[in-house]
């Protein structure tokens, strides 16, 4: 079995400042990788480099495509990469507004990826949109409402439905629970965990919230100043942190 995603020495700097440096890891099918670290530690830069939104200065990102086996994403042609983004990959933004079309109804938002890969039957598209709204706990009678009429938590769930409708294999999530209150966060995490298990998704989740990775991630990378300072199984890293910075992170969590 090949690793789904092989990341090798990905480096990106902004002039003199380091974005991320020499990040390497393997992501296996069905595995969820958490990336934690404080603001400015290079988490989002890393995610942008992995998901093809930004070209790293050095390194390779090798993805195991369905039909042609492992390929370097960075060396792919743009149409190939965009096709991958629409079908096999999904990208969940921190702010739903970045990932949704705010002027288009919820059904249209979910259906867009289907139409982008050639679905041309209105009834089928709508039925699948309604089905997916149900899976993310949005009532079917909201299918024609625009996302602007939704609460923040609903918008985030809609964004997840829109991304997962084409049955991707790899999901990139940037702070999926950012800006939501804790009870909504808990439900969203529950939902995400269910979907990840049920669909056998692989995911890279960037967050600063240790509770999120505790619940979702199988493995964990801790980043500081653009470098990975510690990596391992989630429970191992969180329960027995070795690096000074990880120890600081873990002890900074407020206990209620």
């Amino acid at each position: 079995m090949n690793a789904l995603l092989q990341v090798r020495k990905v480096t990106k700097s902004y002039g003199d400042r380091v974005g991320c440096a020499d990040v390497s890891f393997d992501l296996w099918p069905g595995e969820v990788m958490g990336v934690v670290g404080e603001s400015g530690s290079g988490k989002s830069t890393l995610l942008a480099c992995l998901s093809g939104q930004m070209a790293p200065d050095r390194g390779a990102v090798i993805y195991d495509t369905r039909d042609r086996g492992p390929m370097d994403v960075l060396a792919m042609s743009e149409p190939e990469r965009r096709m991958l983004m629409r079908t096999d990959w999904a990208l969940v933004h921190q702010t739903p507004r970045d990932g949704l079309r705010m002027g288009v109804s919820a059904g249209g938002n979910v259906g867009e990826r289907l139409m982008a890969v050639g679905a041309r039957h209105y009834g089928d598209i709508r039925a699948r949109a309604v089905d997916w709204l149900g899976r993310v706990e949005i009532a079917a009678d909201r299918v024609d409402d625009p996302p602007s009429a939704f609460s923040g938590g609903m918008q985030q769930r809609l964004q997840i439905a829109r991304n997962l409708v084409t049955g991707p294999r790899l999901v990139f999530m940037d702070e999926p629970t950012g800006g939501l209150d804790v009870s909504v966060q808990a439900r969203l995490l529950d939902l995400l965990r269910g979907l990840v298990r049920e669909m056998g998704l692989s995911a890279v989740i960037v967050t600063h919230d240790l509770a999120v990775v505790r619940l979702l991630a199988d493995r964990l990378m801790v980043m500081k100043d653009g470098r990975v300072v510690e990596a391992g199984l989630t429970d191992q890293v969180l329960d027995d942190p070795q690096h000074g910075y990880t120890q600081l992170l873990v002890s900074s969590v407020l206990q209620v």
Binding site: R82, R86, R101, V104, S105, G107, G108, G111, E112, R113, M115, A116, V117, R120, Y122, I125, R126, V143, D144
Partner: peptide, 14 residues
């Protein structure tokens, strides 16, 4: 990439 054009027509029907 013309999927978006159909999103407009989808919105019309919905």
């Amino acid at each position: 990439e013309y999927g978006l054009m159909h999103v407009k027509l989808y919105e019309d029907i919905s």
